[in-house]
Design a protein around this nucleic acid. Structure first.
Lengths: 158, 158
DNA sequence: GGGATCGGGTTGACGTGTCAATCCTGTAAC
DNA sequence: GTTACAGGATTGACACGTCAACCCGATCCC
């Protein structure tokens, strides 16, 4: 899996590839973010929360479970939920069974916004990412990404 | 260059590859950021500014030129320079020839910090990115990245 | 019972980025 | 001249993330 140790110095070529890789991913992220913002008036963080709640039973999740599913720090989620609650996209209620927990519920408005945002967002992913690559290149992306994830000890990512 | 239009709907597989791609790049960015922070007490934004100034003649650049070289908005640069100036990494002086412009100068402290941060940072790129991939995979990254950059109308990236 | 502690969640301070408004100085228009 | 406008840069308001501190109800322990 890991290669033989090669010399620790980066070649010019490796550095160029690295910079292009990371800058391109960042540019892609920014473009998607812009589309989501202009087409659906939400950030990708909003989208992530709405998506996860949409897929949950009763459109409801414990705050801690939500954090775990999206992979955020508790505090980040709390701040973000505060902002989303102010905009009426979600609602927080204290958990019936566990007096500690907080239940996060998707509001009707939130569900509606998510429905309307979802299609253009997926289209944007198609246009900006999938359309740029041949089927073989898509496989290469998958392959390379898997190698990186293994190296970084990340989930295989279903 | 652009592919034949394929159906606009994303397959499950394409979505998985996309998510893995973007999450992996983000994780990689975060790891690098963490290493830079813990090893050299600076952010990658700081690093970028210090690097660009280091390579400039007289360790000096017009603010607008600097913004152009790193691809930042003026306002972002201005905010960031303010913070870096407070930490003594750079200095701003009004431009001699052009009463509009501002010259940004790398201080001795800034140069020193950059020198000490540079080696561990490059090592981290090697360990986290290059070491994860075979030479063939590195070529694949380059290939795929180039395709994405073309599609997004980004510079080829020397 | 009265702490110690723990898990779940919130809060505040701070650094950061974006956007729009502003400022400042030189130059063109009249 | 003064009004208009330009480029270069700064500022302020706001959204966002992170970190550390905190709050609060349970539970353990003695």
């Amino acid at each position: 899996m890991a290669q033989e140790p090669r010399r620790a110095r980066l070649t010019r070529e490796e550095l160029r590839i690295w910079r292009n890789y990371i800058e391109t991913a960042e540019a892609l992220r920014a473009r998607l973010e812009g589309r989501l913002q202009s087409e659906s008036a939400m950030s990708s963080a909003d989208y992530r929360v709405l998506l996860t709640l949409s897929e949950a039973e009763r459109k409801t999740l414990r705050s801690s479970r939500l954090a775990e599913l999206i992979g955020w720090q508790r505090s980040r989620l709390s701040h973000h939920l505060g902002r989303m609650e102010k905009r009426g996209l979600i609602r927080r209620t204290t958990c019936a069974d566990d007096p500690h927990g907080v239940e996060v519920v998707l509001t009707d408005l939130g569900a509606e916004r998510f429905r309307h945002g979802s299609v253009p967002h997926l289209r944007a992913v198609h246009e900006l990412f999938v359309d740029a690559l041949t089927p073989e290149q898509l496989v290469q992306v998958d392959d390379v990404t898997a190698a990186l994830r293994r190296h970084l000890d990340l989930d295989p990512g279903r």
